[in-house]
Structure formats: structure tokens, C-alpha cells
Amino acid sequence: MNRSEIRVLIPRAPGTNCDSETAMAFLDLGVKVEVVHTQRLFRERNLMDYDIIVFPGGFSYGDYVRSGAIWAKECEYRIGRELEEFIREGRPVLGICNGFQLLVEAGFLPGFEGRSIYPQAALANNPNGFQCRWVRIKHVNSGNCPLTREIPPDAVLEMPVAHGEGRFLFPRDREDEYLRRLYEQDQLVFRYAKPDGTFADGEDPYNPDGALHDIAGICNPEGNVLGLMPHPERAYYGWQLPGWTKRGTPPEYGDGRLLLESIVRYVERRL
């Protein structure tokens, strides 16, 4: 598929606040982007007209109840079936921060046996409260996730996190089982890492939210639904990086671009 024909849909809800920078980043990649209010989405749009859906960050519906919970229910009721079809067809869905929370709340992630009725994981309160900081995440997927195929295995990417609820957890009694399944189905995609590239091993601040097994991002068993807590759209340009001033001039791009470009490339190859 020709890149300029790729259509990216960025749904937004009241309280979504990362849609414009996410749109800017995709526009820079040469694809078409539409930011659409969820109300308008189910009234006037057909999801199947799009090639990529990106649920952006923010505090949808104030994150009252639980982060992403209300927006997830809204999507489930209004566009649930369409969204399932979109995913079944192998079209890519990306959830960033609040978008990741939505995908977990709606049962799409980890989605061990397809979409679950109840969330199988939680993105719970950080032990240190809201944290805005740059972190390193290591690409650990072994090839199941087609959306990160362009990112070299074991590559360490630098991106900021900014969340108060992002501590990835499984139910205590199923922790081992679920973790094993993540490995078996190659659903782990990003894990928090230290500056030397080793895993954070739960150590603060490298693992900023205390996530189980340093999990920063996972995909569904089919690999076309990806959610992560860090913000690639805030690490897209070189001038957004925290350390460039030491070098004198900013590089053109940051690591966030690698991820978004990889998703676009997947769609290019696919059709």
C-alpha cells in the first residue's frame, strides 16, 4: 500500500490530551491522519475505512473510576463489534498510555484467548504516584508482533513516561501462569531497562511504576494490537530528547519515530 494512502484514525474522548502531538508525528511519516471525537466516530464514521487506529494518551473522562475504564466501556458499547472486526482482519491498533489502559480495560490486551469479557490485567497505581520522566525500554519481542518488526531485537529505546497509573499487574493467583503465557505466545514487547541495557528488575526509577516483570508494553497473541505506557510521540523529534544539548545540535529524530515508522511499514508491506 502506498504510504500517502494510509489512513490513521486517532479517536479522542473528553479528557484525551495527547491527540495533537500523536497526529503531528504520524503526519510527519507521510500518512493521512484524522482525530475524531468518539461521539462522532460512532455516528458518522466507519472504522473499516482506516488502516491504523491509535488510542492516544490523556485522562479520558477524567480517569474517574479507573484509568481508561469509562472510555473503554464507551468504545465497547458503541464500536465494540467494529473494533473486533478491525482487529480480526489483522489491522494494527496502538494504545499509548491512556490508550493502553483502554485496551486492557476493554479486554483486548493481553487477550490470551481473544477478547476477554473482564480485564485480565491491570495498570494500577504507581507506588511513587504520578511520575514524569524519561526511561529506557528494551524491545523484547521475538517476532510475533509485526508492528515492531523494524525495531532491532534487544534495541533499547528512550522515551518519556507520564502517568500515575501504569503499574502492569496480573491477578496475584494467576501471575505465574499469565506471565508464562506472555512468553509462550511472544506477547511481551517492551520492558523497562537500565542505562546499560539490562532489565530494570523492578528498580526505581528505571522501572518508574513498579510494573511486574518490568513490563512497559505488550501485544495480543496475534501481535497486531500493541499497548505501551511510554510516549513515542513525545520522543519523535531529536529536539524533544533530554540529552541532545550535550552534543550541540539535536539529531533529526528520536526513538519514538522507530516505533511509529515500524507500524506504518507494516501496513505498507501488508497490502
Partner: peptide, 21 residues
């Protein structure tokens, strides 16, 4: 204090309140 405020949202912060790594 500074980390409990989001200083990166909107993606336009070049020089951040806490500088560098």
C-alpha cells in the same frame, strides 16, 4: 515535586525543568 507534574505533554518542551538525564 517536578516529576509529579507532566512537563512533556504536548511534546513541545525543549528545555525541561530538570535538565538532561
Amino acid at each position: 515535586v517536578i516529576r509529579s507534574y507532566d512537563h512533556e505533554v504536548k511534546g513541545c518542551t525543549v528545555v525541561k525543568p530538570l535538565h538532561g538525564w
